[in-house]
Design a protein around this nucleic acid. Structure first.
Length: 971
DNA sequence: GAGTTTGAAACT
DNA sequence: CAGTTTCAAACTC
């Protein structure tokens, strides 16, 4: 392998003489990849490792991950010192390890090997070619799994340059195979990729030109690059359907993949990079997928091709896993990426011209992407990178302002981050990284930075859309991603979202500054803007007495370690005190399982299709605070109010006095809910009809239902284990459910239940909707996509394909895999949701997604189930959305004050019809999209082990009623 | 920048 | 579960 690699390397070096960026990339990418792989793998493991800790793992898993990372970092630090020869040795080691890691799949193993070899080559090439420190290579070497990542990184970077070249040369390579192969073999991308990729890129560009005929070629090429890099994600998005299935197959895988995705996101483009070592295969597949995607992208039927490829990839579980991961990330990308081609050609311009706030509402990323194709690229990159960055570090995300996100903590951080520059974030990441390691990869970091800069510059050249700002932005992100990857795993997701949003909103960031700052080792103090103020755009804590080990500390509450920007005193919320942090977290969680759960749950207000009603009902921002505020003097008009701070309206859960929340008054919310309840009641009349329909439906699709039910049951079983997970996402959905389940006010359980319901509903819906008949798979896939999308995004653009949603779904599933990552992801989603909400108050989808992640993260099983559910009941996705939307408000209320929420629920109680079996209920709920969604939620609530069955019955009844109506209408 | 206000978190 | 205290952020000057 090595010899060929060397050859490839040589070739790559030769081929990329002008590819300084690649060279630079190689070190940087390698560095990043090292981080990401470790993180991803560890993160996943960690997350799993902390099953006991429902929520804590998520947040704090990162620390563990960090620990591992630290080891990796340490190694890295060492590597830099290592000679190139050592680096090569390391590469060999990695190869060996990777070989051992190679999972059952032979193809995957082969792919991995190829990747590894490629990566090795790349590294070697880098070493030889690049003056960059060996560290990167060494790091890469250590992380066998990373090779893929490295390759991805390299490939991504290289690709962009290649794209540039191609643009110039516009090579007519029709060799899809070659391109694909290169894609598959990331390493090959660099070595061979230089040529092949260029060709491929050239083809792509040509195809784009032909297809699109739009001037956005630049943007597209970038997009292509992104797709290639993230292509897996994009593909995943496209392949969502398949993914869903995959998810169903391997929930764990999905989780891992998610984690990986996170890692990937951190790493950059390549979701692949994030993939754990064993999943290197996945990465490879992802690459393959990318290649395919690219090709597809070239052709108009990108999405379709993607879809096919998804399944093609055979992609066994691994493939699926990857996809999930990629999807998760891809979701961000895919929305843009997947859309990019198909949409880009047709829609992008229009979209760009007139970004549909609504559409974008569903997915901020999308909107952003749409806003500027170039941004899309950036977004992708940013997505990748962003995740890596810890929320607090998040860059400026100027636009995002506040992620009003799900987690206040996160939000706060995010907000601050939004204010700050992405560059700063990157710097912070480095600081964190250094802090974690106790070392400062000064040389490496500086080199990396420089490389990234140069690379970014090259990219910028390549990408017209990105323009200089984007370049800088990209660079910073990439850099940050690398750094972040090293440091914070859990927060990555949040970070990503923030970053993405920030990028979108404000593509320009202080790149140079960030790098420069970053270069400056002075880790914490220099930048810390004394207080957690947002001056940097990154909020940070200023704890003086709590040692940053209490929820008072935003960092701690957000599940992230304190970093430079923090002005805390006697801080123990640092990687070196990981054990302490974890213990503390556990303690806090023991008291309140939802302590670290996102505080803000989004409703799926937008839900467009069926639910104009819901939308109307929903407050401008469907998101709500789980527990609600308790403001007495601020009238919910100041940041003292968590609801206001999160840019969400107050709900029934709030105990505020004289609420004047500009985002939605409690009274209004209640009124809306009442209206909903009335509707529910009216629908209840049709329950019988629904039931009948259900019976028939059930019969129609017993198999699906069975699996779903089984899953649901499992979920229920699981739910008790990890209440936190459940609650988060479903919290939104919960609202309804909360009526049903009074148990946990905040309880994730509600959320989970909602998920379950959603899944059930989805399944039901599928059945009810004739999906059961033969469409099941397709429906499932599609539905799952939709569902996921709904679930994640909450508000999918009607226009936007499921692809967008798909990624989100993946994210959702992914979080579950790794608690830490999940946390991050959840946060990220929350943020994203929040951000979206902020941007687009109407969109609730995002919040829901975040919540999902939470659910997933804490309770991997739940997430798994969810994934399966999503798969099964993709169609129900809409319903889910509806449910989420409807639920979200309730959830918020519920979550915040389940009991309190009960008031709101009271109306529902009337409607609730206890008796119906869950299945029926589910089925019924499924029928009615919106209503069913709600119904599902209700049912879901009961489904949760903790939740009282009575509540469930109620919920089920309600949903059923709604479903009945829907069914009736359908019939 | 210091001091005050505010509400969440923690404690009893 | 309610009340009180502690805490850090938000806010004001």
């Amino acid at each position: 392998m090595e010899s060929p690699k060397t050859d490839k390397i040589i070739t790559s070096a030769v081929t990329t003489p002008s590819n300084s960026p690649q060279v630079q990339e190689s070190p940087f990418s390698s560095y990043v990849s090292n981080l990401s792989p470790i993180k991803s793998v560890k993160a996943a493991h960690v997350a799993q490792g902390f099953p006991g800790l429902s929520s804590p793992p998520l947040v704090f898993t990162s620390p563990r991950i960090n620990v591992q990372r630290e080891a990796s970092f340490l190694k890295r630090s060492q590597y830099p010192q290592l000679s190139s020869a050592e680096a090569t040795q390391n590469d060999n080691r990695d190869k060996k390890s990777t070989d051992g890691l190679v999972y059952s799949e032979e193809s995957s193993s082969i792919l991995q090997r190829g990747l590894i070899t490629d990566s090795k080559k790349d590294f070697d090439a880098k070493d030889s070619l690049q003056s960059e420190p060996h560290s990167s290579s060494g790091c890469i070497d250590e992380y066998l799994a990373d090779p893929g990542e490295v390759d991805c990184l390299n490939s991504t970077y290289s690709v962009s340059p290649c794209l540039k070249q191609i643009d110039d040369t516009s090579k007519p390579s029709n060799d899809l195979k070659e391109t694909i192969l290169t894609c598959d073999n990331k390493s090959g991308l660099r070595a061979d990729a230089s040529t092949v990729v260029e060709e491929h890129l050239g083809l792509l560009e040509e195809a784009k030109k032909d297809i699109q005929g739009k001037p956005t070629s630049d943007a597209r090429p970038n997009i292509v690059d992104e797709e290639e890099n993230d292509g897996t994600s994009s593909e995943c998005a496209n392949i969502k359907s398949s993914l869903h299935v995959d998810h169903a197959i391997d929930k764990q895988d999905c989780q891992h993949s998610q984690v990986k995705d996170r890692g990937c996101s951190h790493q950059d483009d390549c979701n692949c990079t994030s993939q754990p070592l064993p999943e290197s295969l996945q990465s490879v597949e992802a690459y393959e997928d990318f290649g395919e995607n690219e090709n597809a992208g070239v052709s108009n039927g990108l999405v379709e091709n993607m879809l096919f490829h998804g399944p093609k990839a055979n992609q066994n579980q691994r493939g699926i896993r990857r996809r999930c991961l990629q999807f998760g990330e891809a979701s961000l990308y895919t929305t843009g990426g997947s859309n990019s081609y198909p949409e880009a050609a047709s829609d992008t311009s229009s979209r760009l011209a007139a970004t549909n706030a609504e559409i974008e509402n569903a997915e901020p990323c999308r909107a952003d992407l749409k806003a500027t194709s170039g941004k899309r690229k950036l977004v992708k990159l940013t997505d990748c990178i962003a995740p890596s960055l810890p929320p607090p570090y998040c860059g400026n995300s100027s636009t995002f302002c506040k992620p009003s996100g799900i987690g206040l903590h996160l939000n706060s951080i995010v907000n601050a981050a939004s204010m700050g520059h992405a560059s700063t974030a990157s710097i912070k990441l480095e600081d964190l990284y250094m802090g974690v390691q106790g070392k400062k990869p000064t040389s490496v970091s500086s080199q990396v930075i420089e490389k990234t800069k140069s690379f970014s510059s090259s990219l910028s050249n390549v990408e017209k859309n990105s323009a200089g700002d984007e370049e800088g932005w990209f660079e910073t992100k990439a850099f940050t991603a690398a750094s972040s990857a090293t440091t914070v795993s859990p927060n990555n997701l949040e970070f990503e979202y923030q970053v993405v949003q920030d990028e979108i909103e404000k593509p320009n960031f202080q790149k140079a500054d960030s790098f420069e700052e970053y270069d400056q080792p002075s880790p914490t103090k220099k930048r810390k803007k004394t207080s957690a103020t947002e001056s940097d755009g990154c909020k940070r804590c200023n704890c003086k007495k709590t040692k940053c080990l209490k929820l008072y500390c935003d960092c701690f509450a957000a599940g992230i370690y304190c970093a430079e920007p923090c002005a805390c005193q006697g801080c123990f919320n640092r990687p070196e005190y990981e054990d302490t942090v974890l213990e503390t977290r556990q303690q806090i969680e023991s008291r309140n399982p939802l302590a670290f759960a996102p505080k803000i749950v989004q409703r799926v207000t937008e839900f467009p299709p069926n639910n104009a009603e819901d939308g109307s009902r929903m407050t401008p921002s469907s998101a709500r605070h789980k527990r609600g505020c308790n403001c007495k003097k601020s009238m919910c008009l100041k940041k003292y109010c968590e609801c206001y701070q999160a840019n969400v309206g107050c709900s029934t859960g709030c105990r505020c006095d004289g609420c004047k929340n500009v985002y939605g008054r409690k009274e209004e919310y209640i009124a809306v809910e009442h209206g909903l309840a009335k509707e529910m009641v009216s629908n209840a009349a049709s329950k019988k009809n629904l039931e009948d329909a259900f019976d028939g439906k059930l019969e129609m699709v017993p198999i699906k239902r069975n699996p779903i039910h089984a899953e649901l049951h499992d979920v229920h079983d699981l739910t008790p284990l990890t209440p936190t997970f459940q609650y988060s996402d479903h919290g939104k959905n919960v609202p309804k459910s909360r009526f049903l389940s009074k148990r946990s006010p905040e309880s994730d359980l509600f959320i989970l239940s909602s998920y379950e319901k959603s899944s059930r509903s989805s399944t039901r819906n599928l059945e009810d909707n004739d999906i059961l008949s033969g469409r099941d798979k397709d429906l499932l896939n599609l539905d799952s996509c939709d569902w996921q999308a709904d679930y994640n995004i909450g508000t999918m653009d009607p226009n936007t394909p499921r692809c967008d949603t798909g990624p989100s779904v993946c994210h959702l599933t992914a979080p579950s895999d790794t608690s830490s990552t999940a946390m991050a992801s959840c946060r990220a989603r929350d943020w994203t949701n929040v951000s979206k909400v902020q941007r687009c108050p109407g969109s609730d989808s995002l919040s829901s997604g975040s919540s999902l992640r939470w659910r997933n993260s804490p309770v991997t099983p739940v997430t798994r189930i969810v994934g399966t559910k999503s798969l099964q009941g993709l169609e129900s996705g809409r319903e889910i959305h509806d449910i989420l939307q409807d639920d979200t408000p309730e959830i918020l209320k519920d979550s915040s004050t389940p009991i309190k929420s009960v008031k709101a629920s009271s109306p529902n109680k009337k409607r609730v019809s206890p008796p119906h079996g869950h299945i029926r209920e589910l089925g019924s709920s499924s029928s009615g999209a919106l209503r069913s969604g709600r119904k599902f939620i209700l049912k879901a609530v009961p489904s949760f082990p903790p939740l009282t069955p009575c509540i469930d019955s109620k919920g089920s009844t309600i949903q059923e009623t709604s479903n009945l109506q829907d069914n009736n209408s359908n019939k």
